[in-house]
């Protein structure tokens, strides 16, 4: 993968200093700290989407199924088993993985737009389950739960404490993601994205790689959903809905699929933009929609991807994830006669 260079490290360091200072900076910018927490949560969710969209070349248009499963996993385990903070996050993460293991084998039968449609359909199945099984999930009204104390210490994380917990999780996900995309596995995913047939003719059973990528993505997404559940102390069916999936895909593309920090940039613009615009304008979705259209048409590498290209010496770098293969062909060596 690309070398990030000294300026990349400097920019990353500045970014993390700003994130560390957010509880002090946010009030001066008239931002609620919960908005900063939301930015990090959705940045984690968008990184999950990024792994599939930007690095593997499949379209996770039903990703909120894993996000919602994470929120419900955390909420139900807190409500029914009174688990602690970390345990609820682990259960939420596992709930996402279980979702991926259930639907993965079906999704893997298709590629391109058909994968996306199948995933939306399966996501809606989870939505309707949450909607219908009222006695477990609270149905349309959702379910309230309390944020449990941290295991061992008995500390209730609130406000800045909760923000820093989420920042720690975000940092761990970023580091893990960075290591993953630089590993042979990450390189293999990018190869599959660019030319799946060639990858198979290098002896790679591409289905297995995409399945593992899907599970990793679902784990990250489930973790993000569990964090979100703990943040708002609430889980409701719309978290599983395809609108929610669309929002997270939008953040990923806006920031730049195929870049490490693109999802964070997208989440900052989307979450803060929504917060500012929705109080000022009743039709706040329109400017965000216009920005998204401009992004896809004008700079499909996203804001960060385009900015990185403008840096000196980077002009000719071709990065994975700049083209969105919405109509990627169904791979040919899977014969109909099988």
């Amino acid at each position: 993968m690309k070398p990030i260079g000294i300026w990349g490290w400097v920019a990353t360091a500045i970014l993390f200093v700003l994130l560390l200072l957010a509880p002090q900076l946010a009030p001066r910018l008239h931002l609620a700290l919960t908005i900063c927490t939301d930015v990090l949560l959705f940045a984690i969710a968008a990184m999950a989407v990024n792994l599939l969209l930007g690095y593997t070349g499949v379209l996770p248009f039903g990703n909120a199924a894993f996000f919602g499963l994470g929120a419900y996993g955390a909420g139900l385990s807190i409500q029914n088993f009174h688990v602690g903070f970390i345990t609820s996050l682990v259960i939420g993460t596992l709930a996402g993985v279980v979702g991926a293991v259930l639907i993965g084998p079906f999704l893997l039968r298709r590629r391109g737009i058909y994968f996306a449609l199948l995933m939306i359909a399966f996501g809606q199945v989870f939505y309707f389950i949450a909607y219908r099984f009222t006695n477990i999930t609270g149905g349309e009204d959702g379910m309230n739960f309390t944020r449990p104390p941290l295991e061992g210490l008995g500390i209730h994380l609130q406000d800045a404490g909760f923000y820093y917990a989420i920042l720690l999780i975000f940092t761990l996900v970023v580091v893990g993601f960075w290591l993953l995309v630089r590993s042979p596995f990450g390189r293999t995913l990018v190869a599959i994205k660019q030319n799946e047939v060639r990858a198979r003719y290098l002896g790679l059973n591409t289905d297995r790689f995409i399945f593992v990528a899907l599970m990793i993505s679902a784990a990250i997404e489930g973790l993000a959903g569990a964090c979100y559940g703990l943040s708002i102390m609430f889980a409701y069916p719309l978290l599983l809905d395809w609108h929610q999936s669309g929002d997270i895909v939008l953040m990923t593309i806006l920031g730049g699929a195929g870049t490490i920090f693109g999802p964070l940039v997208g989440a900052i613009i989307y979450v803060i933009g929504e917060d500012i615009l929705s109080t000022a304008l009743p039709w706040w979705q329109i400017p965000l929609g216009a920005l998204f259209v401009a992004c896809v048409l004008g700079f499909p590498k996203g804001l960060l991807g385009t900015a990185l290209d403008l840096l000196p010496g980077r002009k000719n770098r071709i990065e994975p994830g700049h083209d969105l293969d919405f109509a990627a062909p169904i791979i040919a060596d899977r014969e109909t006669t099988r």
Binding site: P184, R187, T188, V190, A191, Q194, N195, V197, R198, A199, Y201, L202, G203, L204, I318, E319, P320, H322
Partner: peptide, 19 residues
Amino acid sequence: SVFPELTVYENLAVGIESA
């Protein structure tokens, strides 16, 4: 049939790592 956006080195590395 290659990986157009990867370098020559990376194109070969994918196959070598596979083997």
